[in-house]
Structures are given as structure tokens and as C-alpha cells.
Amino acid sequence: MPTTASAAAAFADVTASESTLRRFLHGLPGVDAVGLEARAASLGTRSIKTTAKAYAIDLAISMIDLTTLEGADTPGKVRALAAKAVHPDPTDRTTPTTAAVCVYPDMVATAKAALAGSDVKVASVATAFPAGRAALPVKLADTADAIAAGADEIDMVIDRGAFLAGRYLEVFEQIAAVKAECGDRARLKVIFETGELSTYDNIRRASWLGMMAGADFIKTSTGKVAVNATPANTLLMLEAVRDFRAQTGVQIGVKPAGGIRNTKEAIKFLVLVNETAGADWLDSHWFRFGASSLLNDLLMQRQKMATGHYSGPDYVTVD
């Protein structure tokens, strides 16, 4: 199977200089905002019932990067989150585990220890998350710390300032450098902060920039700004990974993060995945939800499907 490295080689001409890279990114097809949003809205009207819904709920649970990214995070908080990731519903051991727990670098070791023996990965934000405003050596050190502490996945942020100023090559080289730091030890998720890139054209360009630079995943947002994951920006990124694989054979994952709070919304995102990128992406290896409160809503819906009656917040755990 082609690797991200082979994909990078395929774009060597494009990424050779600032001007070739700019020409390539600006030559990508434009995005009509209304048409994109209409398509996302129309897929949102799919009606997912009974067996399909049960499947979708378990799939969604298995795709969650259960996240805590607060200044107030403590080892106790992280351990509780880890326990929840391993046993999302203590009353029902058939519930799948979440894909990962997502924490700051200094909490990686705690999370790693708490998750020992489970398949749940530890993802760490890095590169001066969430603003990304630090020199490259600092970002690389941040990344190295997280990996050294046992992180399986790195969620880096791009330098939006450089991107918006048109310094695409700088952004590219930073991603490539972080990718090199990750090596074979951690999968790299590249966060664009789509709310700050502001336009769909920029999101498409950033998607290609990230994929060419070696991202294993492209991720919408930090959850720290006003607009985070939306059906439309996720649809657009799914189109990008679909087209990238068609062109290079390399499959890249997608992670919408922030703002997805309930089952209904999560299922809409899965419909987007199913009908845009296709069934190959319907797996936690290729699609993630960056979320925290979503999990409990999925669990309540799961209980409803099992028992036939509506559940309530007292019947799922609060951590």
C-alpha cells in the first residue's frame, strides 16, 4: 500500500518552491459555498433507523477521540476520562471502547498508564496548541515530549498566520518537520483551524497542503474557536481525501472536532463519510470525532435502542 512518504515524493515538483506550491494550491478547483452547504444539508436529511442506527452508534463511539484540553486538567481528571474511554458504559460491557483519549503533552504519561492493557490510543495535541504561535524548535520539542511520554498520535496545529499571509511553503515545511519527528512512532493529525481559515477555498488548499506534507489525518479544528467542525467543512475535507487517494493511492483520515454534541449530528457525519469518501473510511483508523459530551448522548441512544425506553443523564457517567 502506498505510504504518505510515497505521496510526498509524487508532489516533489509541486512543493519544490513557494511559487510552485502557490500555483498548485491556487489551481485547485474552487468551492461554491452554497452548493457545498446544500449538499451537506441534503445528506443531513438521510433517515437512519433500526439496525443502521445501532451500527452507526457503535461505530461513532469507536471513532471518538475522547478529549480534555483544559488548563484545569489534572491527573485525576485524565484517569477518569481514560476509564470512561475503556468502559464507556459500565452497565453494558458490549459497548465499544473509544478510539483514543486526547490530552495535552504533559498528561500523556498519565493517560498512557491509565489505558495500559486496552486498545485505546493516546493522542496528544502538540506544536503550541491551540494557537500554534511558537518557533519551530519549540513545536518540535513539544511533539518530541509527547511522543517520549508514549503518545500514539499527535494532533498538531498549523500556523494559520503563515497560511493566511500566503507563506504556504513555511506551513508545508513545518508539517513535514513534525511528521519527521513523529516518524513511525506516532500518526500525525494536522489541525487547520478551519474557523480561522474562514473560506472553503482555503480549507481545500489547506487539506492538500497537509496531505502533501505527510499528514495521516486532516482535522478541522481545535475546539477553541467560534466555528469548529461543520457538516460542510467536513464534507469538503472528505472530498479532499477521496480525491487524494484517487490520485496517489494513499488514504488519509479525517477528524472533525468540536461542536458535535449529539447522536443525530454524529450520524449525519457518518452519512457524509459513507456517501462522499465511501465505506473504506467507516473505521476508526480513518475517521475520528474530536468530542467529549457526544459520548454520553451516544450512550443514552444506545441504551434506548437496547431497552426501548428513553434514557436520562443520571444513567450515564459524568467525568
Binding site: I48, A52, A56, N274
Partner: peptide, 11 residues
């Protein structure tokens, strides 16, 4: 390509 995510009938 059949998807494991077959939508059940929703009449």
C-alpha cells in the same frame, strides 16, 4: 462497493 452502513428502510 457494498457498505457495512446499509441504511435500513425508513418509510
Amino acid at each position: 462497493m457494498t457498505s457495512p452502513f446499509e441504511y435500513a428502510p425508513a418509510p
